[in-house]
């Protein structure tokens, strides 16, 4: 069994189309998205339409809940004034540009998904099993904490996104946690590609999950973001691979790997 797991799309419909094609080329039989279709990028309807057309199995992210239910803010969980300033700009744009016809679909997405693939119980969430907008960063997710989440969720493998930076770890019990990263913006590593996770249960190499770097037409995305008058700080991230906003939520280890 082969399956692809996409993290936050953040309106990057160009990257999403590329990821769908790439996953199919690699033989993915099932496609999953762990939520946050909107935010950051342009034209929110286009990503929603691609996901629906491809029948991607969805988990609801905080952005999907917020847009679907027209909430006051995106619920991203930032605590810093500058982070919140950019989160408000991004949310106002996505909320305004998402068609009314798509909102019930976003509002009705399941917050969690349990599936069995190749005899392994996978539990898919956006943030964590206990909180939709919880950030599971590699450096602030110790083993005992992750074991607890897996046990409570009844999972052999817990898959999440929300942070935008991919990582995976096998726990002492043999359980595994995979943060699948995000298709919506680069991983703050100075590269313009975005990432998703791929599972091959019959792969002879371990671990069965790998991360796929995905090149896409980021120049086109940047042009469209500028045409939509989205913040230049967001465009800079797309063009350079370095995060310029939403930085204060990063733990020190992840922050120091970035430029800003």
């Amino acid at each position: 069994m082969r399956a692809a797991f996409f993290g936050g799309i953040y309106n990057n419909y160009i990257g999403l189309e590329e990821a769908l094609a790439d996953a199919r080329r690699r033989g993915a039989e099932r496609l999953f998205c762990l939520g946050d279709v909107g935010g950051f990028g342009p034209h929110p309807d286009r990503s929603i339409e691609s996901l629906r057309k491809a029948q991607v199995e969805m988990v609801q992210g905080n952005y999907d809940d917020a847009v679907g239910n027209a909430r006051e803010d995106c619920g991203c969980g930032y605590t810093d004034p500058r982070d919140n300033h950019f989160a408000r700009l991004s949310y106002a744009y996505t909320l305004d540009k998402t068609s009314a016809g798509h909102r019930p679909w976003l509002a009705g997405l399941p917050p969690q998904l349990s599936v069995e693939l190749g005899g392994t119980r996978l539990h898919l969430v956006h943030g964590s099993p206990r909180q939709q907008n919880e950030f599971l960063w590699e450096s602030t997710a110790p083993d005992a904490f992750l074991e607890r989440l897996c046990v409570e969720a009844g999972a052999d493998v817990l898959l999440c996104t929300h942070t935008g930076i991919h990582w995976q770890r096998q726990l002492p019990s043999g359980r595994r946690v995979v943060n699948v990263g995000a298709l919506g913006r680069p991983a703050n590593d100075g590269r313009t590609c975005v990432w998703y996770a791929f599972l091959d249960t019959e792969a002879e190499t371990a671990p069965p999950f790998c991360f796929i770097p995905l090149a896409y037409d980021h120049q086109r995305l940047a042009r469209e973001m500028r045409a939509e008058k989205l913040p230049e700080e967001f465009v800079e991230t797309v063009l350079t691979g370095w995060w310029t906003t939403c930085l204060e939520i990063l733990p020190s280890k992840e922050r120091l790997r970035g430029r800003f």
Binding site: A141, P142, A144
Partner: peptide
């Protein structure tokens, strides 16, 4: 703390 699954 470890027994309780503490993060920080």
């Amino acid at each position: 703390g470890r027994d309780a699954g503490v993060r920080h």
